[in-house]
């Protein structure tokens, strides 16, 4: 079973996704697939906070900032993947190369990452019993983005659509309230 959980920043989607996983994965071993890149104090603080929130809930953390396919074998039957906006950013922006003339480290951009990410996640979903995926609503601020930012938003939109099509359920969380867009679950309505 694959469930896609979406919502805006600080909407309560993570907590809701976690509750879904604990409920649906009762009696099963559980994995928390963390996508945040360890790249500084702020990230470390966020990771520490999230770990504290999960402490004692029987979730084993597997860190995977890029290439989900690498960790499929490490996952338990119930998996919470958080979150696609990080994963997409990591896949797109995390490569670096050295400029031959200046010797400077410059970022490289991976294009068209939606297909790769979607395929890897679908492979994961075939290997586990329950997969809850957290994504992010970044599509409605109306700002005129261009270049890499626009490409990032477009890729994340594409991933959301592709996964929603395959998912058994899609739920949008609005301040902790679930709005089921596909496959209504009888879960704490």
């Amino acid at each position: 079973m694959m469930i896609l959980v979406t919502g805006g920043a600080a909407s309560g989607k993570s907590e809701y996704a976690e509750r879904l996983l604990l409920q649906l994965g009762q009696g099963k071993k559980k994995t928390y697939l963390a996508t945040m890149q360890r790249d500084g104090k702020e990230a470390e603080a966020r990771i520490a906070r999230h770990k504290e929130l999960r402490a004692g809930k029987g979730l084993e953390t597997v860190e995977c900032p890029v290439s989900i396919a690498r960790v499929i074998q490490e996952c338990h039957p119930a998996v919470l993947l958080e979150c696609l906006s990080n994963l997409t950013a990591n896949e797109m922006f995390c490569g670096t190369e050295t400029n031959n003339t200046t010797g400077e480290e410059v970022f490289t951009i991976q294009h068209e990452v939606a297909q790769k990410i979607t395929e890897e996640i679908l492979r994961l979903s075939e290997q586990v019993e329950i997969l809850v995926i957290v994504t992010n609503e970044v599509f409605s601020d109306g700002l005129p983005y261009a270049g890499e930012s626009l490409e990032y938003i477009r890729e994340l939109g594409r991933i959301n659509r592709l996964l929603a099509q395959k998912a058994d359920s899609v739920v949008e969380v609005v301040y902790g309230i679930p709005l089921w867009h596909k496959g209504l679950l009888n879960f704490e309505r």
Binding site: F139, S140, I153, R154, L156, G157, N160, R161
Partner: peptide, 8 residues
């Protein structure tokens, strides 16, 4: 209606 890139 809907956000950008949602498949409207």
């Amino acid at each position: 209606i809907g956000g950008a890139f949602q498949g409207k």
